[in-house]
Structure formats: structure tokens, C-alpha cells
Amino acid sequence: MSNKTQWQSVCSVDDLIAESGIAVWTADGPVAIFYLPNRIPCLFAIGHTDPFSGSNVLARGITGDLKGQPVVASPLYKQHFNLETGVCLEDDAVQVPTYPVLLDGNNVVLEVPVKSQVKEIA
């Protein structure tokens, strides 16, 4: 796999939901974007796939903070993931990918790896 990345525009500011998450499809598969307006920075992007169930659900979890770390709780089995590092608080051997995310005007843009072959499951 190459290490090249690209910035991809994924949605507009209006799609975001305060204190909660939305899911977008990217060149690297499903990604969850969280908008926490009371934090600096206020945007976080992590993999949308819950590693414990394999289901694409993390954007639908409850956000918050634990010991100062911004987290989302998986809606299926309730493990917490650090929104900055992707590390699971209950089991630090488990980690979801994280992505740099920025606001470009009204657009939310993500830095995702360029893959030679985009993973597709029919």
C-alpha cells in the first residue's frame, strides 16, 4: 500500500450535528465525523466501523469526555473510543483509524490515504 494521502471534501457544515456524529463515505471507506462545538478544535474524524461488532455504527454513539479525553461510546457494546487517537479506553489494544479534518469555508475536508484499490464489498 502506498503512503500517499489526499484531501477529500466530504460534506458541508450544515450536515454536522452539534455534540453528535454523522457518517461519510471516503476513499478510505466509512468515516464518522463528530462536531463538538464547546471544544477546540471542534471537529474529529475517526473510522465509522465499530471494531467489536464489525458494524458501521460509531457515528451514532453518544459523545462526551472522560478524564479530559474527548470520546464516543459505541452504540452496540458501549466501549469508548478517544476521538483524538482512536484508542479504545476499555482495551487499549484496540484502535480505530483517525483522520485529520479541517473546515474549508463551508466544506468539511478530510485527509485520507489514497489506496490503489478502494475496498468494496458488494
Partner: peptide, 17 residues
């Protein structure tokens, strides 16, 4: 209703199901 979109930028269905 906007909340009920699998991927806000893409019409595709969730591929893991």
C-alpha cells in the same frame, strides 16, 4: 430527517451488512 442518512455524502448502502 437529515439524521437518517447512512452516509451524508453518498447514497450507497452500508457495505458491511
Amino acid at each position: 430527517r437529515k439524521r437518517f442518512r447512512e452516509f451524508v455524502n453518498d447514497e450507497r448502502k452500508d457495505p458491511v451488512q
